[in-house]
Amino acid sequence: MSIVSVIFKSSIGKKYVMAGTGALLFLFVIGHLVGNLQVFGPPELINTYAHFLQSKPAMVWGARIGLLVLVVLHVTTAVQLSIANKAARPVTYSGGEAYGSAWQSRYMLMSGIVIAAFIVYHLAHFTARLPAINGVGDFTKIKTVLHGEIVPDVYAMMVLGFQVWWVALFYIVAQALLFIHLGHGIASAFQSFGLRDHVWWPRIQFLAKGASIAIFIGYALIPISIYMRVVGSDYAGKAAAQLKDSASVQPAVATQGKETH
C-alpha cells in the first residue's frame, strides 16, 4: 500500500491528517486575525489591505482553494474518526463522564460543528455579502474612494455589520468555541505527530492555552468594540446614510481620499 492510502486508512494516519490540516488552518487563523485587527487603525488601513488582496485574484483564489481543501479534509476525517470511535463502544456505561478526561477534549466535535456553521455564515456575511443575513442591508453598495479608485468599503461593512447585536453575539460565541477547540487541538496536534516528551508537554500545553486565549481576545475584541460603539460609530452612521440612498455610489466619507492626491 502506498503511504498516502495507509495514512488515510489507519487510525494514527487519520490523526496525522487532523493534526496537519488543523495546524495549517491555525496558521490561517493567525494571519486572518492580523489582517482584521487593522480595523482598529484608520479606515484607509484595512481598506488598502482589502484592496491589495482583491487586486491579486490568483493569490486570493489559490488561498481560498487551499483553505477549502484543508477544511474538507479536516471535517471528513473528523467525521470518519467520530463514527469509528462511537462504533468502538457500542454499549455505554451506566453513568458518569469519561473519568480523568480533559473537558475540552469531549467537545471537539460539537465545537467543530459550530465553527463550521460559523465559517459558512461568515463567508455569506462578508465575502458573498448576502443582504438577507446581515441585518443591515446590501453591503455590496457600500463603496469608498481609495487612491482615486472606487473600491468596496470593508471598514464600513465591519463597523456597520457588528452594530447588529445578534451578529456580534454569534461572532463572539463562535470565537469562544474556537478557543475551546484550539485549546485542545493545538496541543493534540503536537501529540499526534509525536512531538512531545515529559519535558515539552507542559510547555506545549502552556503555548496552546496562551495562543488560544490570544486568538480569542484578538477576534472577540473586534465585534465587542464595534458593538460598544468604541470603534467607527461616526463612520458607520455615514455609511448607513449612504446605504439608504442606495442608488448612490458616492464615497461615504469625502475626506478619505484626501492624502491620495
Partner: peptide, 9 residues
C-alpha cells in the same frame, strides 16, 4: 478499537 483524542482518561 477507536482512535486517540488525547483526552487523558
Amino acid at each position: 478499537f477507536g482512535a486517540c483524542t488525547v483526552t487523558g482518561s
